[in-house]
Amino acid sequence: MAAELMRETWSGEVSVVTIGAAKSEGGTRSAMVKIGGQKTLPFLFAEGAIPHKPVIALEIWDIAPLDWPEESTKPYGQSIKDPLAWAQMCVKEFKAQLLCVRLQGAHPDFGNKSAQQEAEFIKALLKKVDVPLIIKGCGDDEKDNQVLAVCAEAAKGERCLIGSAVQDNYKTLVAAVLADGHNIIAESPIDINIAKQLNILISDMGLPLERIVIDPTIGALGYGLEYAYSIMERARLAALSGDKTVASPFICFIGQEAWRAKEAKVGSADQGIMWEVVTACALIQAGGDILVMRHPKAVEKVNKYIEELFIPR
């Protein structure tokens, strides 16, 4: 007798988040990126629909990054000193579908740019490239509250993904995102209970759960990857069982974590790239929906991996 595979049927599904607004919707993006919508665990195609592929966002900064290992900046050459040229290179040369811009220059220790300067930069960036944007603050709560609110307004109608809201600092950002029609990143410190709580706090302010993307905080290979993996898996299992409060897609900041690993900075030139690739591939298997990455070669390899996963069998 042939063995029959056990198939799970799930009652819940991951919410679909749309990033970017085309002209017809009041924005200026050439395409939209949809993520989420899974009705089963990663790549169990026989059990349920997986309507949207994981998508990679290339990461850029508003200033020349000081602490990136040389290997990770090399592909961008001199453009890395000019954020707009860098952005254009990501889209034109490396075919990025999505850009994640980190406004590091607003940080008091990294140049302390004003909210107004950053808003002008966002406007210029939106003119320069036509892919959807993820806008990330500098990590200083007080400064981010000033800068992100003004940037959200500057990008009004473009349906960006803006972050990050954290448990102790979410109200200002939620209000801005609500007012200007964006999506929000809810960041929790590898903690499923806080991830759930933050989603509830945000939705209590009136932002629908369908406009939240969870940043579970990840670790690179060798630096806590498996903790992130298990948190993501637990949230996904609950989501598929019908818990809407954790049914958000995931964004994983692969590049920043992988290139922090000491293994990425030593050995052969390819080692950092492979560290980024392996971290990304593992977290795709955990259910990662957006992977924010740095090295174009790593992106190419991971994109190929995603394509292969989606070949019908």
Binding site: N193, K196, Q197, I200, L201, A238, K244, T245, V246
Partner: peptide
């Protein structure tokens, strides 16, 4: 269900 500080209202949101 997964614990969170607002677990009572979280359940009711389902």
């Amino acid at each position: 269900n997964i614990y969170c500080d607002s677990f009572l209202s979280a359940y009711r949101k389902k």
